[in-house]
Design a protein around this nucleic acid. Structure first.
Length: 947
DNA sequence: CCTCTGCCAAGAGGA
């Protein structure tokens, strides 16, 4: 309130993109406002800046907005704001138009020619011929080449080149002297824009001065290529203005070019201050809608109102967001739009007429859940930390890039990055944010190598920083699948019936109609190795017309079952789409399948695929030589079995191929919208999972409470006729299994053989004796009396006494002959893993695997040591993790022969699931007290003690 | 309160 007009003006002057008159104007307005606030005693508006808000000066300045003044209007003429908002949420899943493909190819040829610095017709033709296109598209591409050559001759660094005049400089003329870069990636935190610039060009500006003297200036400006009609439209020009804004910090660009490749004509685009302002206002409005897509009312979230529907038949007719626009209107706004407008009524009917209220509810419900979750994800690991956190807070790398795009670096700090991580490369000062993105290949103490999407060798002498790039995916695949489920098409209508309306699945009654005569023997042979419930599962799948659910309790041979299922389907001549959420789960099955010499195609990035499966990937097949369209088609169609992750369905193969069956492994861990994805491409599906194990992870609490962690597997389970339970397990011995049976499965879990039930490896006895522990396969070590208290740190909860105890136990076990690779250590909290790993640095412990419960799902070890961590006298702060029955169930079912649990029973009693477990353990006399195993007073020096 | 995996991308053009 003590701000004077002068002070305001001075502050505003630091915003150097504003003109002086603008600033004086704003200063006037603001001082007026301030006076108003003073008058009305509305100073409460100037409340303290919240802690989570990061303010900064400099190029990436950030302010806390107190209030907005002035009328809030935008020029809606540029395009439909509603379409822009929808476009950010829903990406299209069709392959795009012919023109788009052509555009992509012409760009490609241009950029390759620019790299080779050769625009001769001969080179251009050679480049064009490398494309895998059909005759028609190839011809279309070739039609562009003469104008490409013409452009280069006219404008690109030749003695005869014409100069174009730029209006802004009056009679100034401009010549392109060099194409400096292609596909430059720019993130501009300052303007809140990001994009890829087709071409950055070095230009010469000749400017007359004082009559005859001319000045010569060199600049780097963005060049935008267009293959469509030479419209020089406001959209095209706006795009160039945005690119100019983005390159401002890097190159001081103040203009850009539109290059129409159909004709070879070059149009300069010089933006006025007002143009830029209007565009940024549009940008801000768009972000406003995207950012505030959820609003809170009375403590409950709901989807916000979107910008109104344009009622322009011309624009709406070809809009790619027609369906989503209509869906949002009907499902979220309950059709409150002015339906008297013919245009609106027509397309609402066209796009959503086939849907009934439950469908619309499903859509709006999941849309809300996804928006909530996306907001939490963005807040947690959004990209903003790339420019908001100072380098001191991050890890620093000295970076030397080589031309091969493989970079080597010297690590100054300790790296939190692992091989395979996605990364963003920027410079240290925050001037070149998002220079490149890529993946880490190798991480060692002193160097990091990575493959980047761009060649950064020209930036030599710059100190780079690398940030891991996690939260980029967002939930656009979820929303796209959701939107597709509402489509009026055969596949979508059928899936909607099953998933939304929950129509009971149907089965045929007789195997003979599905089983080809000549496959009978083979199938019978394959079935031989299976147990009863597994055989039942095979039969159910073959008889299904819609879907089958296979419940795979812990250790019941899920992978074997799926592998066998694929072999049978393959033998019958059925095509199978094999998917799961994770790469490792897909490869797990494929590794087994490979042994039975069943052929398959593995889709997905080579870097994420198991090395032994690499030979089956598209990547490696193409390396061996795919030179024609028909060869590519053959590659895509050759195998009956195709394996990929649920997210991999964007692959072009799915524009054509359909499958007889889709199998989804880990289905109980996949959220509904993602699980739906692959199901669009198959006549029938099989979901394999166990809803008594971990559900999909949902970070947003409200979304979780509204049911976002309900998998499709769980939703469909109510149709018990579709469910087969695999309850014969081959992992745990009898006592270990009994824990899970009493906790979750009510005795349904059985041992597959006497050998499984009673195994205790021979070396057991020695190492158990060495630890003074009871030789029982299950033992809970109660630390309540030690006491072993938890500590809450920034990274989470840990328990150093438990960690020390586990370290001692492992030392003794390994000394007594237990193989480190047979030992697994599990804790629910990451921070505890760090504490334990820190103690296991000596070479004796190499091979011991320390991981979270979540990461151990689907795996096992001979001996498992489980650290419960939580131990506190305080009533509050129990945390969510141990309250989940499913997480505990996973934790106690990983051990084959011996399960050692370490925890404080007095605290753990407060968690209902652990309490039930403790009750069982007590009854079975499986609890020991650590205090009894120790000499008196020894716990006080536990970390250094000799047990 | 601390569990986690996906995805190459931002733009290809139409009216």
């Amino acid at each position: 309130h003590s701000w004077t007009r002068e002070l305001v003006t001075e502050r505003l002057l630091s915003l150097h993109s504003l003109s002086r008159s603008d600033i004086l104007n704003m200063a006037e307005q603001m001082t007026e406002k301030l006076n108003v606030y003073n008058d009305k005693s509305r100073l409460c508006l100037y409340s303290k800046v919240p802690d989570h808000v990061v303010l900064s000066g400099g190029p990436n300045n950030r302010y806390w907005v107190l209030d907005l003044c002035g009328p809030f209007y935008i020029s809606s003429s540029i395009r439909c704001m509603r379409r822009a908002v929808l476009g950010d949420m829903f990406k299209s899943f069709d392959g795009g138009s012919k023109q788009m493909l052509n555009g992509t190819m012409v760009h490609e040829v241009f950029q390759r020619a620019a790299t080779a610095k050769d625009f001769s017709l001969e080179t251009l033709s050679k480049l064009a011929d490398q494309a895998l296109l059909n005759q028609e598209m190839k011809q279309e591409l070739h039609d562009y080449l003469p104008s490409l050559e013409y452009w280069a001759k006219e404008h690109l660094n030749s003695p005869t080149q014409k100069a174009i005049s730029l209006k802004k400089y009056d009679s100034a003329t401009v010549k392109v002297i060099e194409l400096a870069d292609i596909e430059e990636n720019v993130w501009s935190p300052r303007f809140g824009l990001k994009g890829k610039i087709d071409v950055t060009a070095r230009v010469q500006i000749h400017r007359p001065q004082n009559g005859s003297r001319r000045t010569l200036e060199e600049k780097t400006l963005p060049l935008e290529l267009k293959t469509g009609r030479e419209s020089n439209s406001i959209e095209h020009r706006s795009q160039v203005i945005l690119y100019t804004l983005m390159s401002m910090e890097r190159y001081n660009a103040d203009a850009g070019f539109l290059l129409y490749l159909k004709t070879g004509n070059l149009h300069p685009v010089v933006a006025s201050h007002m143009d830029r302002r209007e565009l940024l206002k549009l940008r801000n409005t768009l972000v406003h809608y995207i950012h505030n897509c959820v609003e809170k009312e009375a403590g409950r979230s709901r989807l916000s109102r979107f910008p109104d529907i344009l009622t322009n038949r011309q624009t709406c007719q070809y809009c790619p967001q027609r369906r989503n626009c209509a869906l949002y209107e009907r499902a979220v706004n309950n059709g409150s739009a002015d339906v008297s407008e013919d245009v609106v009524r027509d397309f609402l009917q066209e796009e959503t007429g086939h849907l009934i209220p439950p469908h619309l509810n499903y859509f709006s419900h999941w849309l809300l859940l996804c928006c909530l979750e996306a907001a939490t994800m963005e807040a947690k690991n959004g990209r903003k930390r790339v420019w908001l956190q100072s380098v001191e807070e991050r890890y620093i790398f000295l970076h030397r890039f080589q031309r091969s795009c493989v970079a080597s670096q010297q690590v100054l700090g300790k790296s939190g990055l692992a091989s395979g991580d996605r990364i963003v490369v920027s410079d240290q000062e925050g001037r070149l944010v998002g220079l490149a993105t890529g993946y880490l290949c190798e991480v060692s103490r002193s160097s990091i190598s990575c493959t980047l999407d761009r060649d950064l060798s020209k930036f030599s002498g710059i100190l780079f920083r690398l940030d891991s790039d996690e939260g980029v995916v967002g939930l656009s695949t979820h929303l796209t699948n959701l939107s597709r489920l509402m489509e009026n098409s055969q596949e979508s209508n059928r899936l909607r019936e099953l998933v939304v309306d929950l129509r009971p699945p149907e089965f045929i009654s007789n195997l003979s109609s599905v089983l080809p005569r000549d496959a009978k023997d083979t199938v019978a042979n394959i079935l031989k190795g299976l147990n009863k419930p597994q055989k039942q599962a095979m039969k159910k799948v073959l008889l299904s017309k819609d879907y089958t659910l296979i419940v795979g309790m812990p250790g019941t041979g899920k992978t074997t079952t799926i592998c066998t299922l694929v072999r049978i389907l393959h033998a019958c001549g059925f095509s199978v789409l094999l998917t799961s959420y994770t790469h490792s789960a897909v490869d797990n099955i494929l590794l087994k399948l490979k042994r039975f010499r069943v052929g398959f195609l593995r889709l997905g990035q080579g870097q994420k695929v198991h090395p032994d499966i690499l030979a089956y990937t598209e990547e490696s097949a193409r390396k061996k030589g795919v030179h024609t369209l028909s060869e590519l088609e053959q590659l895509y169609n050759k195998e009956l079995v195709v394996g990929t992750t649920c997210m991999g369905i964007k692959h072009p193969i799915f524009t054509r191929r359909r499958f007889d069956f889709c199998i989804v492994d880990e289905a109980s861990q996949i959220s509904q919208p993602i699980c739906l994805g692959p199901l669009f491409y198959a006549k029938r599906f099989v979901l394999v999972g166990d809803h008594q194990q971990l559900p999909p992870i949902v970070q947003n609490k409200e979304a979780r409470s509204l049911g976002m962690d309900e998998s499709l597997f769980k939703r469909l389970e109510l149709h018990s006729e579709a469910v087969v339970q695999l309850n014969v397990q081959y992992r745990m011995n009898r006592q270990i299994m009994s824990l899970s049976n009493s906790l979750m499965y009510e005795g349904r879990l059985e041992c597959g053989s006497e050998r499984t039930a009673s195994t205790n490896p021979e070396h057991d006895l020695t190492w158990i004796q060495a630890t003074l522990l009871p030789s029982n396969p299950v033992c809970f070590l109660d630390c309540s009396m030690v006491p072993a208290l938890e500590s809450v740190e920034r990274g989470g909860v840990s328990n150093h006494t438990e960690a020390a105890l586990i370290h001692k136990l492992l030392s003794l076990l390994i000394k007594a002959g237990c193989k480190p690779s047979d030992i697994g250590v599990i804790a629910p909290y990451r921070q505890q893993l760090k504490a334990i790993s820190a103690l296991l640095q000596s070479s004796a412990f190499i091979g011991v695997e320390v991981n979270t419960v979540d990461r151990y799902q689907g795996r096992d070890k001979s001996l498992i040591v489980l650290s419960f961590v939580k131990s506190t006298a305080e009533e509050a702060n129990l945390g969510e993790l141990l309250k989940d029955w499913r997480r505990l169930n996973v934790a106690i079912t990983r051990a084959k022969h011996k399960l050692l649990m370490v925890g404080s029973a007095s605290t753990l009693h407060r968690y209902a699931p652990v309490e039930k477990l403790l009750h069982h353990l007590q009854q079975e006399n499986m609890i020991s007290f650590i205090i009894r195993l120790l000499p008196p007073g020894a716990h006080k020096s536990l970390p250094s003690m000799d047990l």
